[in-house]
Design a protein around this nucleic acid. Structure first.
Lengths: 138, 138
DNA sequence: CATAATGTCTCTAGCGACTAGAGGTTCAAG
DNA sequence: CTTGAACCTCTAGTCGCTAGAGACATTATG
């Protein structure tokens, strides 16, 4: 049995964040001391580690809720869980694609137009002002 | 002179967003009709296009504010503007790096452990529960 | 055993960048 | 002149926390 601060140290999840997870239903309310302080056990620790890992991988709170529910109902859980993870993967890939387009455009803007001499006006500003200067993307 | 709806159509920026930009100081308050409705001119249109383009590239409102200020003070503006754009570029690159690590991990999780037979428990869930199963990253 | 320091409690508000809705007014077309 | 679409302001909600106030609990030290 350990306090919220101890749980925080062990999981690297900040104390207010732990309380937040409880309010949104990701963590079930733990036991309390007589003085109304939260006391956690090994199960609580494991659950929070699971949540933290999933958050680190960018899963939304909602997705994590679904995954936790699946843990409690092992029948059919694997396919459903894989679906959620696959959705997350395709989400991540979409973000990567978009960011790569941005990277390309920003690189072009910051380098000026092929380095062919310095233009009169600031190339960054004129590029942003005139969308026609972009290459297709974004 | 055109209305906020017309400006919205021409820039593809939603009406409430235009008003929001005004409240946060990105757009200067335009003229009004006698009946208190906003009327924009070509300058307003250009400014909003600039903002939209910069937002599309992921610049924060704050960064865009700085860029707009630089437009009005052409001395030294180019270096400062390039700095902002370069910061944005490195930000984008950092995000890409992180997302690529996530992509790798998610791919591993959704595919199961090298496809070597189907494990008893759901691999997605056990992977998330046990951080030790990860490869170094994230 | 008293006190002090640290930890914890609840509650509210703030972040960024919008989005949605209520309830009321104005404009442009017919 | 009437209708209906577009406009106005204001407040509150989104996501996933984070920060702060003010009060109570626990633990370490003298």
């Amino acid at each position: 049995m350990f306090s919220i601060g101890e749980l925080s140290r062990r999981t690297k999840v900040k104390v207010p964040t732990i309380r937040y997870y409880e309010t949104v239903g990701l963590l079930t309310a733990p036991e309390r001391t007589e003085g109304n302080q939260r006391r956690y056990d090994r199960a609580g620790l494991q659950r929070l580690n699971f949540i933290r890992h999933a958050r680190d991988l960018g899963f939304s709170i909602e997705a994590i809720s679904s995954l936790i529910e699946l843990q409690d109902h092992p029948d059919r859980s694997c396919q459903a869980a894989t679906d959620i993870a696959a959705a997350q993967l395709s989400d991540v890939r979409a973000k990567i694609r978009r960011l790569r387009a941005l990277e390309k455009e920003l690189l072009r803007i910051t380098k000026g137009c092929d380095g062919e001499g310095v233009s009169e006006d600031c190339y960054v500003l004129t590029s942003l002002a005139d969308h026609e200067l972009c290459e297709r993307q974004h």
